[in-house]
Design a protein around this nucleic acid. Structure first.
Lengths: 228, 228
DNA sequence: AAACTGTAGATTGTCGACAATTTACTTGAC
DNA sequence: GTCAAGTAAATTGTCGACAATCTACAGTTT
């Protein structure tokens, strides 16, 4: 429906604006830990380093502000956000609320397409666990499973909030510096959720997701407190 | 704790930036319906009308974008968001998920201060209903009750998401143009929630909020469909 | 007539410069 | 030595101008 001209196999060339590119670079720098929490994000410095003017940098920073990676203080500039154990804990609280609603819907609107997608993602989880890939890949694969669930809920709002949560969560996990648990075990703990959804058992699915998120929360928070 | 200089009763004079002021003006214009959904938000026109340069207008528009009032199309500018019945329905779905989590917490962490605050707000609801104030005031008072609940949940994340929801909801209700229900009845339907919370009855509170939100959802959506 | 091409006007995207504000440092009084 | 006031450098806030892009309309071809 979107493809109007399937004549030649030309690939859509990069039409994303300067602002988006700057935002991506900055967000990578923050999530990967190159910019420590609390660090000042100087417009002039970033602009000079990237060889652009300050205007796109400012807009990119505003974008990052709305995804919660940086905060702006009037007349003082942008700073990489400080995360506290409490804030991280609260984040998981929000995530639980969202994901409970999502699995409730999924259990009712279950179909083969979603089944296939989620099953494949659990397989992917096992694959990256076995191959012992880097932490970023592991965390991303985990998040992707939950993202797919939100996407399958048929409510874009859940996905929208989840994306925000995902960015902050990854940010915090990267801060911890190492994976919080055995990757294989993480892969396995997704299976009860899937099993419950397959049988349209709403209560079991809610219980499974509640357990899953709470476990992740406990482990991450424990690890995080060690840094404070 | 925030007051460091309680010497004289001076009021904090307007230190909020130009961006915030522009954002507030635009947001008022959109929510009040002066700018119809789908309308283009021309930077140059707005800048000229307000007597400022385009830079602050752009930033304000970005701010509004993150609160969901406008959307930006690259190289084409900003447009007032179109809302569909489905989107509005989804919004209430998200709101329900959040508020369920909020009342669960409130039922457990109940204290006199919150009790007092919420009771006062229900009284306020009855007051504005009796005085037959304008719709905006009515809706705002309703939202304030739920905002106070989120605020009392001791999880700023819930409040943050709620604020986003509140803006979009008010926007949609203003679109409908008239109040969706009898104000007095609205005021009354908040009481079961409060009653359940007072007795720390989590299940009853969840049931009450579920009923409350679902009713509002049903009424608003029905009204909204008439516009489409 | 329908569809493509080209051009002119308008709008957004980006930039460098100046004004306003904050920050760091120095100076001076107690 | 400590604290306050004053000053200079650095940084953000805002602006007007130019470049890149889009939109609409006219002209041309089939």
């Amino acid at each position: 429906m979107t493809e109007t001209q399937p004549t030649s196999g030309f690939q859509q060339l990069d039409r994303e604006g300067l602002v988006q590119r700057v935002a991506k670079i900055l967000s990578r720098a923050i999530v990967s830990g190159k910019l420590a929490p609390g660090a000042r994000l100087s417009e002039s410095v970033v602009a000079r380093e990237l060889g652009v003017s300050r205007a796109p940098v400012r807009e990119a920073a505003r974008l990052l502000e709305s995804s919660g990676l940086v905060i702006s203080e009037p007349n003082r500039g942008f700073f990489v956000r400080q995360v506290s154990a409490k804030a991280l804990n609260d984040l998981y609280g929000l995530r639980l609320a969202i994901e409970i609603a999502v699995v409730e819907r999924l259990a009712q609107n279950w179909n083969d397409e979603i089944d296939e997608t989620l099953t494949a993602q659990v397989a992917e989880l096992h694959r990256v666990a076995a191959e012992e890939t880097d932490m970023f890949t592991q965390v991303e694969a985990d998040m992707q499973f939950h993202r797919l669930m939100c996407n399958g809920s048929d409510n874009p709002k859940f996905l929208q909030v989840f994306e925000q949560i995902a960015i902050e969560t990854e940010f915090s996990i990267m801060l911890i510096g190492r994976l919080y648990d055995d990757p294989t075990r993480i892969a396995e703990t997704h299976e009860p959720i899937l099993a419950a959804l397959r049988t349209h058992d709403t209560d079991a699915a809610v219980k499974a997701i509640r357990y899953h998120i709470s476990e992740a929360q406990r482990i991450v928070i424990d690890q995080f407190r060690l840094l404070e």
